[in-house]
């Protein structure tokens, strides 16, 4: 099942992708929550109800008539991993980490699967990072890796957009990784049952049609299950939390000279079985809300 958050007629709600249409769960299963995190928190029974509703032929809206939003508009947490692909570690000349290098992206950084990425007024070093992302489906803590599948509801695509000078000039990544619009997410959550082995998926990133990253999730240093165990040792994972598992080689910063993203560039990230997201880079608008 492919779960989406979409807007149509001024209302944002959740649905199930069915070919070139979306089954509107607010109509097909009105008893279910309409916001993704609350829906996921409702557990297996709600997922089963959605699956059943998805087979109904009514309550469909054409995909072309809606705006797809990030499947989770405001994840409770966005956890990300630095240096987690063997090829990316090599290109950055870093030492192989012994424990996962975790950082946060702020939840306000989320944008839709086709939303614009802002080129900051305060930097020119804008970079992309195509990433395979885990979506948590349950409140959980202290999850051993052999039970991690029970708390992963599905997977999606993230672009861990980075502002390299802001990332590197201080020891922590927070400011460089969390600019508004710097976490395109989507286009949907593919439920874990449809993905099968999450560690055998091709991942590719293009900039203006030029292939920049090409790897496979089998190359992950710490896999999804390792990460769930590691993170949940410290804190509660919640329905809708995102774990972005890191990026393979081929980022702009590693090129000589670096090919930073410019206004007008189009970045596409595709992962096998999970679809693709495509985002245009624009200059940070003058009308960005400010004090």
């Amino acid at each position: 099942m492919k779960l989406v958050t979409f807007t149509q007629g001024g209302a944002t709600r959740i649905g199930v992708l069915a070919g070139d249409a979306i089954v509107d769960l607010a109509v097909a299963a009105p008893q279910l929550p309409r916001e993704m995190c609350a829906f996921l928190a409702a557990g297996a029974e709600a997922l089963a109800a959605a699956k059943q509703a998805a087979s109904s032929s009514s309550a469909r809206v054409a995909l072309k008539d809606v705006k797809l939003e990030a499947p989770i508009l405001r994840p409770p947490k966005i956890l990300a991993v630095g240096l987690n692909y063997k090829d990316h570690i090599a290109e950055t000349g870093s030492k192989t980490p012994e424990v996962p290098m975790i950082f946060n992206k702020q939840s306000t950084a989320v944008t839709s699967p086709h939303g614009d990425i802002h080129l900051p007024r305060a930097s020119e070093q804008l970079d992309y990072e195509g990433e395979f992302a885990v979506v948590i489906g349950r409140y959980c803590r202290h999850v051993p890796k052999n039970r991690a599948r029970e708390v992963i509801v599905g997977y999606t695509i993230a672009n861990d957009v980075s502002v390299r000078d802001w990332q590197r000039r201080v020891p922590t990544f927070t400011m460089g990784k969390s600019w508004d619009t710097h976490c395109p997410l989507g286009p949907y959550i593919t439920t874990a049952d449809e993905v099968g082995d999450p560690h055998a998926l091709d991942l590719k990133t293009w900039v203006n049609g030029e292939l920049r990253q090409s790897s496979n999730t089998s190359q992950l240093l710490f896999n999804c299950f390792d990460l769930v165990e590691h993170l949940s040792t410290a804190f509660t994972l919640e329905p809708g939390d995102i774990i972005s598992t890191g990026t393979p080689s081929g980022v702009a910063a590693a090129m000589k000279p670096p090919k930073w993203l410019k206004a007008g560039d189009v970045v596409k990230v595709a992962i096998e079985k999970l679809g693709e997201i495509e985002n245009r880079v624009i200059a940070e608008p003058e009308n960005t809300p400010r004090i």
Binding site: P33, A38, A42, G43, A46
Partner: peptide, 10 residues
């Protein structure tokens, strides 16, 4: 405006 949402199954 929706300020709380939860499934009874929760």
């Amino acid at each position: 405006k929706v300020v709380q949402e939860g499934a009874i199954s929760e």
